[in-house]
Amino acid sequence: MATNTKTRDGGPAMSRSASRRTHGEGLFRFLSTAAGVVLLAIMAAIAVFLISEAIPALRANEGNFFGDLVWEPNSSKVFGIGALAFGTVLSSALALVIATPIAVGVALFISHYAPRRLAAPLGYLIDLLAAVPSVVYGLWGVTFLVPLLRTPSQWLNEHLGWFPLFAGEGIIGGKTMFAGAVVLAIMILPIIAAISREVFLQAPKMNEEAALALGATRWEMIRMAVLPFGRPGVISAAMLGLGRAMGETIAVALIFPATFDISFQILTPHANSIAANIANGFGEANDIGRGALIASGLVLFVITLLVNMGARFVINRRKEYARVGA
């Protein structure tokens, strides 16, 4: 601002190229503003085109989009989002329940427990988890994890079968909601751990020292000075992880058995999700089928948008709070 005026009335030596300079200045400002606007336009376009291409299929739907538990847009033109949305929410919620405690532990390990010299490389090791492509996790999941989880699944079913999630008869284990949730948990762990680690590292050193000087053990110090400070950050990290899990496609597409029912029995082979259904169904879909998949993608877009905006809201509030506290 002050610097702008300084450049505008620059010295006489530079007045010769003044018009070229203002051209350049104008162009540069235009380009950068335009780039930002393009970004906003893309977000708007995603919503607009998903809606406009979903409408014909939704019109042709002879069932109830929000009520039916079938997905047959190609043949009987009946399709409903219910089972898929349920699968998306349940699998992501399970993944979150598995991943969050471990991720917080990992974050604390890096920020407050690991020897200082090892902290950075070990943190990088966790980041590498995020670098493994989704399809590789899918391949690993079907060939290695699914068989591995069969015995523990049967054990859980046998001994804790009274708990609704572990209930079920017939085939136990295999390509289940549980197996998919474990893979999702592994995939969202690095992002939750990375954000939590950052907020834990930002916990004011002077408060940590205050706690130690009162005679707190390391854990008591963390409970007094680190966790309360980091809580909003961990919450938003978990929400971002949740959004990631909901949109995760290929790994679960390989694992989920593509059923269309609502079942809380996570150890039986009943599982699907919006994203997995899109990946598995796209190749064989006709026009209405593709429109139906776009409609389901729109639902996924809206859900993840809400979750992400919620997470950002929490983060932004925390920033203000941190500024006051500092």
Partner: peptide
């Protein structure tokens, strides 16, 4: 300590 450091939460 040098700077007052009550627990902010």
């Amino acid at each position: 300590f040098q700077r007052p450091n009550p627990f902010p939460t």
